[in-house]
Amino acid sequence: MECQGPIHVLECILKLPYEKKMMTVALLWAWWSERNKTNHNESRLSTGEFIFLIKRSTDEWLRFFKPPTKSSTTSTPRWTCPPAEIIKINTDGAFLEETRDGGWGALARDSNGSIIFAADGRITHAYDALHAETIAIQHAIGLANQLGMGRIILETDSQILKQALLSPSLNQSRLGHLFLDIKYQLITEFIDYAVEFCPRACNKPAHSLAALGMRNRQSDQSLWLSVFPNFVTSLVTSDIAVS
């Protein structure tokens, strides 16, 4: 069916499969945004960045608007301990679009669920939420290397970041140089590593640390190696109690 005029275009979009419908909306939104930049003489995205923006928006909207699945039993995902001799590090980033500032958090635990370190810090001049998530993993890797950890599992609640670190698909995006740097550090600095996705429900301590880092005005980074903040130990104890 040929689409003529805005009403017919809308009717055609509504007839598309759900995923293609969301991708079309993301394309139109990105196109409108680039048109506004042109009208205001602002710098525009490259072709690679434009495609990346459409894909990221589509993925985020699909997750946000995904209808809940019906199940006979309701279960909440929980954090799980890593195998013996491996350290699992949960990371998270917080981002405030109005100021382009944010925070990052990282929490490392061993196979018994014991905390190895907790850390947070401020972020300034971030591009977006994905940039904040990427900075969080960068700091986690730096601390793990500094503390002599040879085998690690990195957990993030960003599917896009996991994809970026496990494939070359986003190497040409605006954050591509950061993804490549992280991959290089993982390969050269660690005996063994993995990057895994975890739901937000499994990432509460790191999420709370990132929120604390965003509010931190005294220093760029805080690191705890023995005595940990009460809210961290409380969330960790809750994780272990139900695992």
Rank of each mutant, 00 (worst) to 15 (best):
A206N: 03
A144Q: 08
V25P: 04
W32H: 06
I115S: 00
P68C: 12
W224G: 02
I153T: 11
P67H: 11
P199N: 05
R122G: 07
T134L: 03
G102D: 02
D120G: 07
L147Q: 09
K162M: 08
M1G: 09
E42I: 15
I89P: 00
G142H: 14
I54A: 12
R44P: 08
N145M: 04
S158A: 03
K204Y: 11
S234E: 15
A108H: 01
L16P: 02
E85A: 07
V236T: 14
S43L: 13
T38W: 05
I240Q: 10
E11A: 06
G150N: 13
A194M: 12
D120S: 12
I141F: 04
L147R: 08
L180Q: 08
D192H: 12
A84G: 03
N230Q: 13
I115E: 09
Q163H: 06
L235F: 15
W32V: 10
N171F: 01
E34I: 09
M214C: 12
P67K: 13
S71T: 14
H131Q: 04
D192R: 09
Y127E: 04
I187D: 03
E19C: 13
E98M: 04
K21C: 10
Q159Y: 05
G102M: 00
N230C: 12
L27Q: 00
I160M: 06
G213K: 09
L178P: 02
L143E: 04
Q185K: 13
E19G: 09
P82R: 06
P6R: 07
F228D: 08
E97C: 00
I116P: 01
S111D: 13
T73A: 09
R100I: 02
L14H: 01
I51K: 14
P77Y: 09
W104T: 02
I115M: 05
E34A: 14
N203I: 10
I89G: 04
I135C: 11
G93P: 08
T69F: 14
I116H: 06
A108R: 00
L223H: 10
R109E: 01
N36T: 11
N112V: 01
L186Q: 03
C81Q: 13
M23C: 07
Q159H: 07
A201S: 15
I187Y: 02
E189H: 06
E97Q: 02
R151I: 06
A206S: 10
K37S: 15
F179E: 02
V25W: 06
G105F: 05
P68G: 06
C81G: 00
L186R: 07
R44F: 04
H207R: 13
S33N: 10
G102P: 00
W224E: 12
L14N: 04
T76F: 11
E19Q: 13
S226Q: 14
F231S: 01
A241E: 07
Q159V: 05
N145R: 12
V242R: 14
L209Q: 10
S222Y: 08
I182N: 02
G148K: 05
Y193H: 11
G121I: 05
R35T: 08
E98W: 03
S46M: 12
V195K: 03
G121M: 11
Q172P: 04
L170K: 03
P17E: 15
A140Q: 01
M22D: 07
L180D: 03
I153E: 10
K55G: 03
G176C: 00
T80N: 05
D157F: 01
K55P: 03
N41P: 05
K20L: 13
S43M: 12
I123L: 14
M214D: 02
K20G: 14
M23E: 14
Q185Y: 00
G213C: 10
A30M: 10
I123N: 08
